[in-house]
Design a binder for these strands. Structure first.
Length: 710
DNA sequence: AAAAAAG
């Protein structure tokens, strides 16, 4: 059952063999570039985001120039020591001054972990791995190889999550619970980056124009879905909650829905709210989103209705949604004075214990949408009791990449800490020692990636039997072939009655297998207008001669703003980065062949502005947030529209202008056109040769918002 | 193809 879904069934009709593409030529180089990376995701970058939103006026002028940093961006002013040179966190204006101080604790964590690896590795003894046949892999050195429990670097480690952690961290105010609340200010910057942004652009795009083309997308997500049952219940508002009982068997698959019976009773408060819930259940939705015309209208209608509701809820406060004072306070401090639509819609449901699926692009407040209520629920679940040493985690947040996990922790941690709960990151590429140590002491919320989590479960270091809430971020991606099974195995370690929350900017039927096995009568939420595409992004396609790709790329990227280049393979990404560097354009790569230390470091280099060009694989397509990226270049066109949406969503954030240029060979025009249609994006195609003006034009500074929007 | 554990 599990894997029967071939790619085809998962909705990836786009996947086709790529013939002409340049490929193997770089294969060789690839191996050599490996090396480490240090990762630190930019977790926070304070997304200047939502101008409308609170005080995140950070991005005022829209000057993409610098402000990327979390700390600074945020209420910049408040940041102690970030005002002038010599102070921690000070950031010299545009020169790529040492960014180090500006790192968030998360970033430091990644960096430190990475350093630890490097340091250890460099020592002769570090050879634990010993005879690895990959002699050609230079990166061996940064390999952990030895156990890090004894790791010396303890000190610089952010210590994030655990209480007992000695206060060492200079920069971090003691994290004892008592003063917990106080912390807020020092870590505001991170997290809300993604949230503020959206506000403005959202409303901006009128539904009509936007949803006009909406037809194919939704439709295709659920097309195979068996006949829709009755008529879908009226829109959210009047929707009569469907009682559990009459819940039809899950439509899409014969997978026997778990009957309420075999599922441990849910938390008490759950059932109660069920009925007044306006949202539609997954089943309803599934049924609704058919393939045809009527389905189109349905979708459109539904989205619109929700959008309206969203607007109405913007005046509601955090506490009105059911969150406690402490949490509400942190959110406000984080730059989110009031809830965004998706948050207003989902938080009450999450607090009620309901399983939900939510679609909200990065920047729409997705992280807080699940993070805040998750913390609140964990808090309630302990009923005022104490946190015991060695307690098992009560919440789990899964993400597809380490960088994203780090970023999520950057948002959730302060929220959790405000109520005395602790989080810990559990992902690969870094020593297990600290992670195990944290688990041993006891953490409340685990945030990580599948591999290491499963590894620790197998080692009996991680016990998920007490988990009450599980969040699967980028759920559709996590439900794809390579991720699905590990994900399912992990979920099977959680109690059957635990609450499941699935989020993604491109949530579609791909999550069906997970939904069917683990969710119970889930509610589905979407916020109209929230797709990765935004009116502030200028999409362009350059039809080029493959032989000129390298030169064209060099010219496109040789500019002042930050540019993120996507390549299909690690080898090509590495090659391109080297190529650009050789051409005198500082560039670094980000892909899975790099060790975590290098990944973190290279990403940080872009975030800090020390380098303006980052060439990445799709590891950076989802979730990664770096402020000021005003140009995304797709050296290789993506195969899926969802990938296009995620990649392009790295720019044009916070209502800022952004541009996405995709290079394709002539023979790919048709596929590209089809993909853009599915992505609901209008992008003019232009033929271009090396000397053409278009290239310089596209590389140039973007027109002002006004010009762009015409 | 990429990502995700190591070794």
């Amino acid at each position: 059952m599990a894997n029967p879904k071939k790619k085809t069934s998962t909705g990836r009709p786009n996947f086709e063999p790529r013939y002409g593409e340049k490929k193997s030529s770089y294969q060789d180089r690839k191996r050599f570039n490996g090396a480490a990376a240090a990762g630190g995701e930019a977790g926070g970058s304070a997304r200047s985001g939502a101008p409308a939103r609170s005080g995140a006026p950070a991005r005022s002028g829209g000057s993409k120039a610098g402000w990327a940093k979390p700390a600074s961006a945020k209420g910049g002013a408040a940041k102690a020591g970030s005002r002038s040179a010599g102070h921690r966190g000070y950031r010299s204006e545009e020169e790529g001054a040492a960014p180090k101080a500006r790192w968030t604790s998360n970033q430091r964590a990644g960096r430190d972990e990475a350093r630890g690896i490097r340091d250890h590795a460099s020592r002769p003894a570090g050879a634990g791995a010993g005879a690895r046949s990959f002699d050609d892999r230079p990166r061996r050195d940064d390999r952990p190889a030895r156990s890090f429990d004894d790791r010396p670097r303890r000190d610089d480690r952010p210590a994030r999550s655990f209480d007992e952690r000695p206060a060492r961290r200079d920069d971090r105010p003691a994290r004892s619970f008592d003063e917990r609340p106080a912390r807020r200010d020092d870590r505001p910057a991170r997290s809300f980056d993604e949230r503020p942004a959206r506000r403005d652009d959202r409303p901006a795009r009128s539904f009509d124009e936007r949803h006009a083309r909406r037809d194919e997308r939704p439709a295709r997500s659920f097309d195979e879905r068996p006949a829709r049952r009755d008529d879908r219940p009226a829109r959210r508002d009047e929707r009569p909650a469907r009682p559990f009982a009459d819940r039809p068997a899950r439509p899409f698959n014969d997978r026997p829905a778990r009957s309420a019976g075999d599922r441990p009773a849910r938390h008490d408060d759950r059932p109660a709210r069920r009925d007044d819930r306006p949202s539609r259940s997954w089943d309803d939705k599934a049924r609704t989103a058919g393939t045809h015309r009527d389905a189109v209208d349905v979708v459109h209608e539904r989205l619109q209705a929700q959008a309206i509701q969203a607007e109405e809820t913007t005046e509601i406060g955090w506490t009105d949604l059911g969150l406690g004072q402490n949490i509400a306070g942190v959110l406000v401090d984080l730059g989110a004075p009031t809830p965004f639509p998706i948050q207003a819609a989902t938080i009450p449901e999450v607090l009620a214990g309901r399983d939900i699926l939510a679609r909200g692009r990065t920047g729409s407040g997705k992280t807080i949408a699940f993070g805040a209520p998750l913390v609140e629920r964990v808090l309630r679940s302990q009923g005022g009791g104490r946190r015991e040493y060695g307690r098992r985690p009560r919440a789990l947040i899964l993400a597809p990449t380490r960088e994203l996990a780090l970023q999520i922790d950057g948002t959730v941690q302060p929220i959790a800490r405000s109520v005395g709960l602790f989080t810990t990151q559990i992902y690969g590429g870094v020593p297990q020692g600290r992670q195990i140590g944290a688990l041993r002491k006891g953490v409340d919320i685990v945030i990580g990636t599948p591999g290491r989590i499963e590894d620790l479960i197998d080692q009996r270091k991680l016990d998920l039997s007490d988990v009450r809430v599980v969040v699967i971020d980028e759920a559709d991606h996590m439900s794809e072939l390579g991720f699905l099974e590990p994900l399912q195995r992990i979920l099977r370690h959680t109690p059957g009655g635990s609450q499941k929350l699935l989020f993604s900017a491109t949530l579609d039927r791909e999550v069906a297998a997970v939904v069917d096995e683990f969710l119970e009568n889930p509610a589905v939420y979407e916020v109209a207008g929230e797709t990765q595409e935004t009116g502030t992004i200028d999409h362009r396609v350059l039809v080029i001669d493959h032989r000129e790709k390298g030169e064209i790329l060099r010219r496109l990227v040789d500019r002042d703003g930050k540019t993120l280049v996507f390549a299909r393979t690690r080898a090509y990404a590495e090659m391109l980065a080297d190529d650009l560097a050789d051409a005198g354009i500082p560039a670094v790569a980000l892909h899975g062949d790099l060790n975590q230390a290098k990944r973190t470091r290279n990403l940080e280099r872009l975030t800090s502005g020390r380098v303006r060009v980052l060439v990445a694989t799709d590891v950076a397509a989802r979730g990664i947030h770096v402020d000021d990226i005003d140009l995304v270049v797709q050296a290789d066109a993506p195969d899926e529209y969802k990938t296009y949406l995620h990649r392009s969503g790295r720019t044009g954030r916070a209502g800022a202008v952004g541009r996405v240029v995709t290079l394709i060979p002539r023979q790919r025009r048709r596929r590209m056109t089809e993909m853009l249609e599915r992505a609901e994006i209008d992008a003019p195609f232009e033929e271009a040769r090396v000397g053409d003006d278009v290239i310089d034009e596209l590389a140039g500074t973007l027109p002002t918002d006004a010009e762009l929007t015409r």
